[in-house]
Design a protein around this nucleic acid. Sequence first.
DNA 1: TTTTACCCAATTTTTACTTCA
DNA 2: GATGAAGTAAAAATTGGGTAA
Length: 317
Amino acid sequence: MGDKNDGLGLSLSLGYATQRNHHHQPSLKLNLMPLASQNKHEKTSWTNLFQSPDRTGDTRLSQRGIDRNRVSAAVADHDDETGVSSPNSTLSSSSGKRSEREQIGEETEAERASCSRESDDEDGDASRKKLRLSKEQSLVLEETFKEHNTLNPKERLALAKQLNLRPRQVEVWFQNRRARCCLPFEQAKEIVNSPGLLKFSIRTMTKLKQTEVDCEYLKRYCENLTEENRRLQKEVQELRALKLSPQLYMHVNPPTTLTMCPSCKRVVSSASSSSAAAVSSALAPIASTPRPQRPVPINPWAAMPIHHRTFDAASRS
DNA sequence: TTTTACCCAATTTTTACTTCA
DNA sequence: GATGAAGTAAAAATTGGGTAA
């Protein structure tokens, strides 16, 4: 016998048969089977009770012609009829407040279409719950995500309709997509390809990884700032020493304006040629000193204000 | 203050694929 | 080479908590 899906469970629930009733809806649910919502320890103990210790029994069921999804679907369908929710069933994935809404309104055409699709491309009488989205569906979702990474209810419903999915599925997809890669692809690619940074694939550019990059970048940025600060202080000291030097000070006409060329970083004087020459010659050692370039952000989005960063919580509100 | 709807993070489950005996 | 067990990555789904309206 296989995993939790295969177990014949006894579920007793009072109140709303939803997945999100943990919030405010009164509910009493008793699950006498190793269901998905159990934690790992519970799972272990239950599975120990009900299944053989080796994993092969459950993972290869489908290969041996025992379709666990079919079992699951059957359970789910039954759940739907009886109003008893199995957390492991895909149909029970509509939730709490959401499920109420979806069951009443949204979960109509899209839901039926989804069901019909499932029965269409499956062989048997009992419709198998297909969890994987088709390439076309993923493509459309991806394209939509590129345009905007959140959906309002209308958009979600329309998209669900278009893709023959349940609105909840679309919602979950967007949620997972946001979590999986919160950066636009091109930006993620830039970061991944940038030298000297932690190496990982774009696919694994999770928020955790992003935080690592963040940390790395900030560290370097801080180091660069410290270095630049040190250099500027040194420069100030040199300039002060120069100013205090009587011989030089005599030769320099006061109204000399020093400007720095932004491109070559050389000091240029706008004063008369004689005094300018004196100043520039005096400052030559400083001005001609190869200046370390101001650190160009390795992290392309790090340079932008914090609130522009897509994952930043503040930017959402 | 409560309710609702939404989002997120963390986690679990499922699927598809690879490796290896 | 075919087969199945085991391992693994990725996607789909669930759960619980926070927050704004």
